[in-house]
Design a protein around this nucleic acid. Structure first.
Lengths: 210, 210, 210, 210
DNA sequence: AATGAATGAGGCTTCATTCAT
DNA sequence: AATGAATGAAGCCTCATTCAT
């Protein structure tokens, strides 16, 4: 009795995230306004009406697609910070590396570009994203920077602003991938890119080793 | 009243850039698809039909708005590189500074965000922008980096990728301003931001001064 | 209520010709440009958007409305010619009579007026109509005329031009009905009109019976 | 003083008919709704605004274009009928011939096609045209037919309907020229066409000459 | 008298949303 | 639960008309 109905049930429960996955991919590609529900439905392999069985509106689908992507990267980062022992620069690099591997290499990699493009049209979603992802993510980096300064590993600097400078190349790498990358013949290898960034940080942040 | 035909004529010539300015502001804010021509017309203080006296379609207006913003910043940069004497790190910083003051502080500051958001929907425009702005801008930074490496001021590094890392924080600063900035209570002061970035570069790039 | 999916499906299949019928009537009445899709939709009892479920554009609807009317009248005529025995003048009259009863008395009666009015704006449709209806129709009449001449029933005449003269009154009758007829208090009875035409032909074409 | 201003004056007086001529040509070609005032102005070599110096509206221009073409062909025909002596069939042929040479070979040749196409959209114009051209033209042909019947030249026939049959090929010849003619490789020579028509009439109408 | 820039009502078309099946 | 036909509001675009010059 339980077995026969299992696959159907699994299917049913999986539906919403199949739908948000299709939606997210298309929103990232074309933007919210230029994405048609027909296309989302087609990509998800369902009919247009089916979308309304799971989401009240196109906007609800958008919100769900964003929120789906807010997986526990931040929580993971918080645990990394808590458990870290050793050089602060390594902590910083591990955080960036974690962000990259947990977001940049998943289907959610397009969310930053999407948020950047649509923040103005969806201020509440932007606010939600800011509160739940950005602010907490910034706090992680801030903690690492402050730890380094406190331990005299890093030279003193305005932490809030430094956070922006530290995270910018990683965000830009993601955004680029979903926008201008097609125009470029050869795009930087992400790992090389991150290596250069962290090596610059390593030398740039740290107090001169005499 | 005294000069009969002057005002009408002056208007006629000034119109196109009044219109592209209004269009650019709204495209940056809402994206291409979500911007209504009514709104552009209203912002420019004309009627909807007037737009069609100067541009064939919404898409043509989009293209014009982008191209209008390709002012001779790059040419200026090229002359900076040609004339520069002294430390390569100073050249690099001057280029970034020039970009910021000539784009970041003008009405065209929104173009990078717009291009990022719409690149996929307007591949030809993206390609045009890439060829005429990005490629040449990257060449400038590349020249500065190579100069530094050649003169043994900078440690050796993969130049192409380093360019990305160098420019990313500046682009991100612009993009942020037109997207998530409203969600943040306090946004970094651009000058402080750039100072931190350049000071990181200064230490990060340069060979250790023994 | 009993047959679940039948009515919807039957509707779906019947729709296109319901729509072209409404469109044809209005195109004939007002011309292509002066006919609004709202009016067509209203006449067909559907909403404006429904038209686009079946036709890509107003122009596609126009083409479909014309082509819908190209029913196998010509084929029928061809079989009449093939099977005919007896006087050629009777064959000619049967062809005209057949055209009248199979086009002139159906909803497609307005097509000749419509084609005449719009030929210049839709050259491809005109060409299609010419190839598929006019050319073949003219061939029928031409065959009848040549048969009569060959059998010495008709006096010799330039057949191609004679075709025009023979068909003109029938076409004009149709065209008139959809244009100036309303201005006239009394319009000729079609049957009387055709009788006079054929009796003129009978005497006009045939060799003098001594 | 008089000479210098003469050309300008002549120009000024000629304007309205230059405009209606341009308008008529385009209305005939594309129909009323599909003709743009821009095109008419361009064809007449004036600016769009100028049209409004002479005509209140597009519709007024349409009416003027039609009425301009109602030159005294009918009056001429009336005088032909009044003065005619000799065979009635010759009178009939002279009337058709006169219509052809006075309308069919002038810029007004397109009016019948235009009226046919637009009668429904401009009932008053159609009525005006009917009263002033068609009714009087039919009266001419009717007089010729009745004269022939009265003088026992023609066999008895329902005159009103016969008029239609007699004029139809001539009208159709005109209409065809402005519509489907382009689809045909070779179009009938008008003179041959009229000859066939009149020769058919000659035999078809007349009482058998024993 | 003539121009042509500007207007805005109105049409074609798209697409989010609904609902009968 | 799923479909997809139908809807109609809203946007782009055209073009007859106006008016300052």
């Amino acid at each position: 009795m339980n077995r026969p109905s299992a696959p159907r049930k699994r299917r049913k429960e999986a539906r919403p995230s199949e739908l948000t996955a299709a939606a997210l991919a298309l929103f990232v590609e074309k933007g919210f306004a230029a994405t048609r529900l027909d296309d989302i439905a087609a990509r998800a392999g369902v009919s247009k009406g089916t979308l309304y069985l799971y989401f009240d509106s196109k906007e609800a689908l958008f919100k769900a697609a964003i929120q789906e992507g807010i997986i526990p990267v931040v929580a993971e980062g918080e645990s990394i910070v808590a458990r870290h022992e050793g050089a602060s620069i390594d902590l910083l690099c591990r955080l960036l590396e974690n962000y990259w591997s947990r977001i940049g290499e998943t289907p959610f990699a397009g969310i930053p570009k999407l948020m950047v493009a649509e923040a103005h049209n969806f201020p509440e979603v932007a606010q939600f994203y800011y509160e739940n992802v950005i602010r907490r993510g910034r706090a992680l980096l801030g903690a690492a920077l402050e730890r380094g300064v406190a331990r005299n590993e890093f030279r003193p600097l305005p932490v809030e602003t430094a956070i922006d400078v530290v995270i910018a190349p990683v965000l830009m790498l993601l955004i680029w991938r979903f926008s201008m990358a097609r125009c470029q013949d050869e795009n930087a290898d992400p790992r090389t890119y991150l290596d250069i960034h962290t090596s610059l940080l390593r030398r740039g942040l740290m107090v001169t080793q005499v």
